[in-house]
Each structure stands twice: as structure tokens, then as C-alpha cells.
Design a protein around this nucleic acid. Sequence first.
DNA 1: CTCACTGCAAACATTTTGCACCGTT
DNA 2: AACGGTGCAAAATGTTTGCAGTGAG
Lengths: 145, 145
Amino acid sequence: MTNQRRIILEEIRKVASHPTADEIFRTVRKRLPKISLATVYRNLEILSEFGMIRKLDLAGTQKRFDGYTENHYHVRCVECGRVDDVCLEPDPVIEQAAQGVTDYDVLSHRLEFLGVCAECKKKTEREFGRSKPPKNERTLSDAPN
Amino acid sequence: MTNQRRIILEEIRKVASHPTADEIFRTVRKRLPKISLATVYRNLEILSEFGMIRKLDLAGTQKRFDGYTENHYHVRCVECGRVDDVCLEPDPVIEQAAQGVTDYDVLSHRLEFLGVCAECKKKTEREFGRSKPPKNERTLSDAPN
DNA sequence: CTCACTGCAAACATTTTGCACCGTT
DNA sequence: AACGGTGCAAAATGTTTGCAGTGAG
């Protein structure tokens, strides 16, 4: 546990925002101005190998990291990209259902919700005067797959 | 509908394998040897905008494309990376459950199963003589998020 | 003739790697 | 001295973009 590693872990545990590697880098750099992005990546990898953090493989191009390592679901805001926890018990019945219709050995599942976060909702309401926001442009291409 | 676009669409519809852009490129190049990867990317984008194919944002670094545009779930093999369809009706109850525990407007969900495909299962059985494969190294880090 | 579309190469974004160096043991 | 870890720069990976040229309408 080097100083860099410890501080990276601290900063991840400090936030609930599921930061990307780059966000973690920018935060950690405030305390360790000479740290390099490569060190951040290397330590994120090591920390998640040891189960101290969790590497999230959600939609979008960048991986996100979670200081809360229990298995749980996430919601992503389709407007701003932020990710929050969904306090639902991961349901093993889902896997049994899938097991029934595939010849795979089903080991686990990954469930991600897409929606509009409270902040973006407010922003849209301000712009459109409480009327329902026009969702149609977004929902088609962003529907689950 | 240019020739390139039509052939790309044909090749995607021909397979059930949810190919990546690069796999599509290699397939299409057999019929159009001078096509460029950029053209493939551009047309995949256009075709999915028009709802003729679906761009999948599953785990892993590469996007995959699906000629079957109905909303459905997928399984990914953790050994070889292949992706297959899961014939389960997407369940709106899941979204209602999430809606109850978040302040997001939940619009949709994305469910992906992880497992071992029939082929990789056979391969493992050959190697380990019918005994259960050692799953523990894989399941922890590949569990849902 | 026009204009969307193409091929190519370069740019881009994210992540990984090679390497010399540093600090601790 | 040995060694894991670091910082930096370069490479690798996947995707997008600028641009000049091409071809169907």
C-alpha cells in the first residue's frame, strides 16, 4: 500500500459518484500534484483485483469505479451521464429465467437502468415550463439491448 | 442506400453473432475489397440512427451491432466473448421496481447475462475431465455491476 | 452539376506498456 | 543489491473526422 494507492482508494471511497479514471486522476492530483494517470490506472486495476473497489463496465466508453463493492445495480442519466446506485437486491430469479432459455452456463447478470436524474429533470422543466420533456428523440436509440 | 450501405446491412442481417465493427469490416471486405473501415463505421451509425440495426453497448470495449432490432437481452461468454440473444420478454416490472427507489425518471433498462457458452463449456470439460470448471477466479470480478 | 458518399490518413479518446529511476527493505 | 512502485512518454486500441475525389441522379 503505497501513498498513491492509499490516496486513490480514499478518494474513491469518499464519493458516491462512480468516477471515471480521469475524474479520479484530477481529484487525486490535488493531493499528489505529480502523480501520473498511468499510476492511477495501475492502482485502480490492482485495487479492483483485490476487491477493494469495483470496476464497473457500464454503457459508455469509459470505465467507472465504485468504492462500494457489494453487488448492486446502477442508473445512468442519459442527459448528463452521471451514475447512481439503485438500492434493489440483485435477483437470482433473473438468472434462472435466462438459464432456461439458453445453452450457456449463466453465472451472473448486469443490470443498468437508463433515465433522467433529478437535476436534469429540473433543468428540463425550467426550459419547457413543467410540460413533459420530449423523450421520443432519446428513448429509441437509448433503449436497452 | 449506397452499395456499401446495402452490403453492410445484408452481412449484419446474415449473422446472429452480434459482430463488432471490425468483424463486419472484415466480412464486407470479402465482397468489397476496397471498402474502408471509416465507411463501415459511418454506415453502422447511419443504419442504427434509422433503426435498421441496433448498436449494442454491452460490457467490453467494442460496440457490437445487431440486425435484430427488437428490444431483447443478451448473454456474453466470459471465456470467448461471443454474444447471443436471450429470448426473454424484457420485463417492465423491473423498471417500476427501480423507479420506486430512485429519484430518476427511469426510461429503460439494459440487462446482460454473463456465462460460459456451450462451446467453451465443452472445451473446459475436455480439459478437466467432466469435473466442474474452476469458476471462482472469474465470478468475483465479472459479477454484475 | 450537384451533393451525398467514399477511401485514405490523420486525429481522437481511453487505456496499457516500456523503461529508467527511486525508495524501502 | 533487490524489487515493487512511480512518472513519463510512447504504444495500443477503438472510433471519429478532414479532405479531396467519385459517381448516381
